[in-house]
Amino acid sequence: KCTICLSMLEDGEDVRRLPCMHLFHQLCVDQWLAMSKKCPICR
């Protein structure tokens, strides 16, 4: 589950894993990281 948009991560979707190993939709986390340089879970 992407904790930014709260939707399930589905096969075939573009996802991004951060160095902390948390996984998000690529678009969601890219937009998040443009505003904050910290993982939305770890922050």
Rank of each mutant, 00 (worst) to 15 (best):
M8H: 08
T3F: 07
T3H: 15
R17D: 04
E10S: 12
P40D: 01
M21D: 14
L6M: 09
D30C: 04
D11P: 06
I4K: 04
G12A: 08
L27S: 14
D11V: 07
M21I: 02
C20M: 01
W32G: 09
M21R: 13
Q31E: 08
C39V: 02
F24W: 03
V29R: 06
D14I: 08
E10D: 13
V15H: 05
L23K: 15
I4L: 08
M8C: 12
H22M: 03
P19S: 07
L6F: 14
R17V: 10
L18Y: 06
T3D: 07
I4Q: 03
K37N: 02
Q31N: 09
S7Q: 09
A34S: 08
P40F: 03
H22Q: 04
G12W: 06
S36E: 15
E13M: 06
C42T: 04
E10V: 10
L33G: 07
S7Y: 10
D30E: 13
V29H: 10
E13W: 03
P19H: 05
C28K: 01
Q26A: 13
G12E: 11
K37Q: 15
K38A: 11
D11N: 13
C28M: 01
R17C: 08
T3C: 09
G12P: 04
C5T: 00
D30V: 06
R17A: 08
K38W: 13
L18W: 06
T3M: 10
E13C: 10
I41G: 13
W32H: 08
M8Q: 14
I4R: 02
C42V: 03
M8L: 13
V15P: 00
C2N: 02
M35G: 11
W32F: 08
E10P: 04
P40R: 03
R17T: 09
V15R: 08
S7T: 12
R16A: 13
R43A: 15
L18H: 00
D30W: 04
L33Y: 06
G12K: 08
T3P: 05
L9V: 12
R43P: 15
L6T: 10
K1Q: 08
R16Y: 07
A34F: 06
G12I: 04
M8V: 11
L27E: 14
R16H: 10
Q26H: 10
I4H: 07
T3W: 11
M21A: 14
Q26C: 07
E10F: 07
M35N: 09
C39H: 06
L23F: 14
Q31R: 13
G12V: 06
D14W: 03
